[in-house]
Design a protein around this nucleic acid. Structure first.
Lengths: 333, 333
DNA sequence: GACATGGCTGCAACCGGTTGCATTATTGTG
DNA sequence: CACAATAATGCAACCGGTTGCAGCCATGTC
């Protein structure tokens, strides 16, 4: 079917090894010979078979990228930047979706491992133990999770949370709430800690509400807690929760930002149609993709196990329409 | 490093071919021997190397899925269903993003071709000629485009357009507009034809507005045309255009659906926060993913070039809040 | 003129599996 | 009991490349 290296060798009257070298070590072959080989290859439409090459070299020039859910708008920018960045370095990225299922995740890792030089694990659902075990064969880089002995890319959501709380404080809010995420989430823990510290410094009253599922439903269900807590400013675990929360507040007759200000995290809400447009903590997802690829290729290139690197990326606050001064600003004390 | 078939053979005291058969043709090996081999394999953590297997069998058990833009919310459901469906059939899917660039698309196809048994091409940007040429080595299935000699999955957007126009007519609209997409788009042509036919049958006045880029910007820019045409009901090329259009109408002081009704296509707008929630033509993207995988595996299984199949999937109208009766219903004639 | 040097190419083993064929042991049949 | 059929396993070639080693030739050097 497709032309092989032997077809090219026959057509150009040289040994297969010469053809091989023409592509993988051109400087070792005479210019004239090389041109003859290249002409024959061109003629036959020959393209080296990367899989076969990988058998002997141990380098597939492929990377694996595993995400929990492609449909989550948080991931596509990361995927795109990782892919583009890898392409520039002559690597290809295979994306796989685990559908939030740890078993699928494990199976995908095992399958991918044999066909790639390294794996990028984004927001894994697997236990750290399992990840460490699976990472024995091939370099891993983990995004949004700390795993012992592995290179990691984190986004400093704590910093974003501090900015968000400070923003609420500067608008005059004194009683604020944090609609927390799932209890096991690293991100949620960071947010909680950062929000607590900032609230203390600014002399604010902070209520932790949750844990909640990281979905619109979760936000909708948390609306009651927010009302009960009597807060005027809220930081939600992520944008989906924020959206659900706003909807829930509407149902209870409260307006955003008139009665309650709401801040989300991720900056994933597209479109101009949203009312109000969401104030949110933007995550550097594109940068995370690039950085993760850099770290991974670095580990791939190293002969022995490289020392794991930790990169933390900054976040920022994007102020839009869902935050405003509280209904009546009372001068405290 | 990782255990190979020879390690397992040594550990269990049999020949490599017996180990190979234990995994690829278990009925050919004695139960007792098989158990011994499996135990040794388990012990060593052996997993067959799919790439090596592919070298002799010619079957990688991988499929390639190429999309123009993962970040376009239209694609993820398709990707997810294709992936899940393939998994059930012991195939894995590698997703690649061309970033809307035909050159990247071509390069990706060439790279993937050697590592997969078949390629799923979604909304390709390459010319039909190029696709036909590249499809010589490995089976292709094309989604959202007709390519001679290749299996195809289409979504019947014409049907959806008819439903949309009929819906506007039943609400009492007499002057309606179609905000068309890019001039080269197959989908846009289908919509135009269907809308024209339905309008004629229902005695409506139809204005074709465009072509426009398939983006929010495109919709925003088209708002002027809509006002000028004096229509009260509009079918937009897709949801992004519809969103931009609504925004543009707002800027001109018109309300949706009070003054103008707007219908989108794709049903990709998430979240409950949109005001108004968009009436839209829902596309069977999940079904398309499944169908495409079925078609592809069928072609992969066939020894000789299978006769290309064409599958057309139905669309449906989802009525939400962006459509209503026109400002003043005049009984015609 | 003998010999070392370097450039280029061929040879053959190897990567990790699969598979047609040969070999041996076992069982069934008349 | 002889012979055929069947089951289980080993042997070795092969898939499409890569690579260490050896051989050849043309130079350069003394």
């Amino acid at each position: 079917m497709a032309a092989t290296i032997r077809d090219v060798a026959r057509a150009s009257g040289v040994h297969v090894s010469t053809v091989s070298r023409t592509f993988s070590a051109p400087h070792l072959v005479n210019t004239e010979t090389r041109n003859r080989v290249l002409a024959a290859a061109e003629d036959l439409g020959y393209r080296p078979n990367r899989a076969a090459r990988a058998l002997t070299t141990g380098r597939t020039h492929n990377l694996g990228l595993i995400v929990a859910d492609i449909a989550n708008p948080f991931f596509p920018p990361l995927i795109k930047s990782a892919q583009a960045h890898a392409r520039e370095r002559d690597y290809h990225v295979f994306v796989a979706d685990t559908d939030e299922d740890p078993l699928v995740e494990e199976e995908l890792i095992q399958t991918l491992t044999k066909q790639v030089d390294g794996v990028l694990l984004c927001s894994p659902r697997l236990s750290n133990r399992a990840i460490e075990r699976l990472g024995a064969d091939v370099p891993f880089v983990v995004v949004n999770r700390r795993v012992k002995g592995m290179s990691t890319v984190l986004m400093d959501v704590g910093h974003g949370a501090r900015l968000a709380v400070a923003h609420l404080a500067s608008l005059g809010h004194r009683r604020i709430g944090l609609v927390a995420g799932p209890s096991g989430s690293w991100t949620s823990g960071e947010m909680r800690e950062a929000a607590a510290a900032t609230a203390r410094e600014a002399g604010l009253d902070l209520s932790i509400l949750g844990p909640n599922p990281p979905t619109e439903q979760g936000g909708l269900a948390a609306a009651g807690d927010v009302v009960k807590a009597g807060v005027t400013g809220v930081l939600a675990y992520n944008d989906m929760v924020a959206i659900g929360l706003i909807e829930g507040l509407y149902e209870r007759g409260l307006r955003v930002p008139g009665d309650v200000s709401v801040i989300g995290v991720d900056d994933i809400v597209p479109g101009r149609l949203n009312r109000p447009k969401l104030t949110t903590v933007a995550m550097p997802t594109s940068a995370a993709g690039r950085t993760a690829v850099d770290l991974l290729l670095q580990a791939v290139g190293a002969k022995d196990a490289a020392t794991p690197a930790l990169t933390t990326l900054e976040t920022s606050l994007v102020v839009r329409e869902s935050t405003a001064p509280p209904p009546s600003i009372e001068r405290s004390s």
